[in-house]
Simulated scan of single mutants.
Amino acid sequence: MSLTFAAKLSDLVEDEPLAVTLGDEQIALYLLEGEVHATHNVCTHQYALLSDGYMEDGCIECPLHQAKFDIRTGAALCAPATQPVLVYRVQVEGDDIMVEL
Score class of each variant (00 low, 15 high):
residue 44 T to F: 00
residue 95 D to R: 07
residue 46 Q to P: 00
residue 95 D to C: 07
residue 64 L to W: 13
residue 56 E to A: 14
residue 98 M to W: 15
residue 27 I to T: 10
residue 54 Y to C: 08
residue 77 L to I: 09
residue 98 M to A: 02
residue 24 D to G: 04
residue 47 Y to N: 12
residue 46 Q to H: 14
residue 65 H to R: 07
residue 89 R to S: 12
residue 38 A to C: 08
residue 79 A to I: 05
residue 9 L to M: 11
residue 8 K to H: 14
residue 86 L to V: 10
residue 53 G to P: 07
residue 66 Q to T: 12
residue 55 M to H: 04
residue 48 A to G: 07
residue 46 Q to E: 15
residue 50 L to V: 07
residue 4 T to R: 13
residue 71 I to E: 04
residue 96 D to S: 12
residue 53 G to K: 06
residue 56 E to S: 15
residue 15 D to M: 11
residue 96 D to M: 03
residue 32 L to F: 10
residue 42 V to N: 03
residue 69 F to H: 08
residue 3 L to P: 00
residue 46 Q to I: 03
residue 53 G to Y: 05
residue 56 E to I: 10
residue 20 V to L: 04
residue 8 K to L: 09
residue 60 I to N: 05
residue 5 F to V: 02
residue 7 A to P: 05
residue 16 E to W: 04
residue 15 D to G: 01
residue 10 S to I: 11
residue 60 I to M: 10
residue 58 G to K: 06
residue 15 D to P: 00
residue 100 E to L: 03
residue 1 M to E: 12
residue 64 L to K: 14
residue 24 D to Q: 14
residue 46 Q to D: 14
residue 89 R to C: 01
residue 2 S to P: 02
residue 89 R to E: 15
residue 32 L to G: 03
residue 38 A to S: 06
residue 77 L to E: 08
residue 91 Q to I: 04
residue 95 D to K: 05
residue 5 F to H: 10
residue 72 R to E: 11
residue 92 V to A: 02
residue 11 D to A: 11
residue 79 A to N: 05
residue 98 M to G: 00
residue 38 A to N: 07
residue 101 L to S: 04
residue 69 F to S: 02
residue 24 D to C: 04
residue 15 D to R: 12
residue 50 L to P: 08
residue 69 F to R: 08
residue 29 L to P: 00
residue 92 V to Y: 05
residue 90 V to W: 10
residue 94 G to S: 03
residue 66 Q to N: 15
residue 97 I to R: 02
residue 6 A to H: 02
residue 44 T to C: 01
residue 33 E to Y: 03
residue 16 E to I: 14
residue 4 T to W: 06
residue 18 L to E: 11
residue 1 M to C: 06
residue 29 L to S: 09
residue 40 H to R: 11
residue 23 G to R: 12
residue 101 L to N: 13
residue 92 V to P: 01
residue 83 Q to E: 15
residue 51 S to W: 04
residue 7 A to E: 08
residue 91 Q to A: 11
residue 11 D to M: 02
residue 20 V to M: 03
residue 74 G to V: 04
residue 16 E to R: 15
residue 34 G to S: 08
residue 63 P to A: 12
residue 19 A to S: 15
residue 68 K to I: 05
residue 22 L to A: 07
residue 79 A to D: 12
residue 55 M to K: 09
residue 7 A to H: 14
residue 70 D to V: 03
residue 27 I to R: 06
residue 28 A to C: 07
residue 56 E to L: 10
residue 22 L to M: 13
residue 25 E to K: 15
residue 28 A to V: 05
residue 75 A to W: 00
residue 73 T to M: 02
